[in-house]
């Protein structure tokens, strides 16, 4: 697969490490949330046959964590963002 890195352009997916569902961005505050909330955060993930937002790490590249929107059926990648930007934007809207 080719991931179109927002800064570096097309890069082979072999350079990346896959983590999983991008909901891991929304980590609860450990001083507020309890076990139940953290359990949901860590384990309850969607696993769609279709469009999916995923975290990929450009380990053999610029070490950016990316949010990749990928269709798990066709492997079509429709959007790639820096996870840092996504995280910052989500914090602003909270």
């Amino acid at each position: 697969m080719i991931i179109h890195h927002p800064i570096l352009g097309p890069r082979d997916a072999q350079e990346f490490v896959y983590l999983g569902d991008a909901n891991l961005i929304d980590r609860p505050d450990g001083m507020v949330a309890g076990v139940e909330v953290f359990h949901d955060y860590l384990y309850n993930r969607t696993n769609p046959a279709g469009e999916h937002q995923e975290l990929w790490y450009h380990e053999q590249g610029d070490r950016s964590w990316l949010v990749v929107t990928r269709n798990t059926v066709t492997h079509e990648i429709t959007r790639v963002e820096l996870a840092r930007d996504v995280a910052r934007a989500r914090r602003r809207t909270k």
Partner: peptide
């Protein structure tokens, strides 16, 4: 300038 992999090495 780029990072790449050669023979398993970054």
């Amino acid at each position: 300038a780029t990072r790449t992999v050669m023979e398993h090495l970054g």
